[in-house]
Design a protein around this nucleic acid. Structure first.
Lengths: 162, 162
DNA sequence: AGAGGATCGTTTGAGATCAAACTATTTCGC
DNA sequence: GCGAAATAGTTTGATCTCAAACGATCCTCT
């Protein structure tokens, strides 16, 4: 048979394991498969967002600011699932590039209000197009029938772990 | 109403977004939910493996060596979904702690063969107990009915992305 | 009003990871 | 055989992340 010795190896190692490796119990564990799927999806999205010259991490940040004008950095970090200290250089970069505007709150002068600038809105729009392409690929892998249930399970895991 | 202003905030930010934040399209996207679920699960596993004094990253590494005696570092990095250069300090640490044994291959003296020592076997066994506890929690969130299908979808994503 | 504690954002230090350059060996082509 | 290309593992430099410590500001309680 022609393809017998071919490894499954992908371009970069953003894919599955080589064919002849025994994963043992890992193969049946949710944690391991969750990690492998997430990292493969992230790599793909990373390549895709490179095409529009953006870092994948900026993505949710811009979306959350756009959807929640005046949000503070702490709220943003919670919604985004990152530590607030990780956000400092990100916001700095977005402000520097003129995509986000930052103002001290009047009623609490420790905190900032974040808003998109018009340029930020435009960048977000192009990111959304990019992400939709990515989602179409994922949808194709998941299948329309399983999609809703799959996302529900992911939400349960994200919300349910203490 | 009593609970109106209460945030959903978890202990650390390993949980869901605050209640009153609009996620916009993110809420329905696979990529975002996959990331949030993976990171929540990883945090939980991280805390759990801290209890037995091990780093969560060592886990799959030891399992793969145990299941595939004599595996090389490159094969291991592929199976584990990490760059081979990330593996260098990990293997170094495992060897130093006497959990893994490393020998040059006779037939290819660039490569190493990795094997577990008896101490490595014991450590792996205790890690497996730890991981089973974690998996039970995840199973409870996923539900027995969806479990198999969920893992299949994850595998499709990990394998299917170019 | 004032003291003590909480909270916002930043800084700092540590760790994990990747990608590219490097060394040493091996394999391939002639 | 021998030189060129490929491969195994390491080193180096960059990025991202968290956690703890910190200054500034706010809130609570008296």
């Amino acid at each position: 048979m022609a393809g017998k010795r071919r490894l499954v190896r992908r371009n970069r190692n953003g894919g599955a394991a080589p064919a002849n490796i025994d994963l043992g119990p890992l193969a049946g564990w949710v944690g391991f498969n969750l990690r492998m799927a997430q990292e493969a999806a992230f790599q793909a999205f990373s390549r895709r967002s490179q095409e529009i010259g953006e870092s994948p991490g900026r993505f949710a940040t811009l979306m959350l600011i756009g959807r929640n004008p005046g949000i503070s950095q702490t709220e943003l970090s919670l919604a985004n699932g990152r530590d607030k200290s990780s956000l400092t250089p990100v916001v700095e970069d977005l402000v520097r590039r003129g995509l986000v505007e930052r103002k001290r709150m009047d009623e609490d002068r420790r905190a900032y209000r974040l808003n998109l600038t018009p340029a930020g809105e435009r960048t977000l729009a192009s990111m959304v197009r990019c992400a939709r392409g990515h989602e179409r690929v994922l949808d194709g892998l998941i299948g329309a029938r399983d999609r809703k249930r799959f996302i529900d399970v992911l939400k349960r895991i994200a919300a349910g772990i203490e």
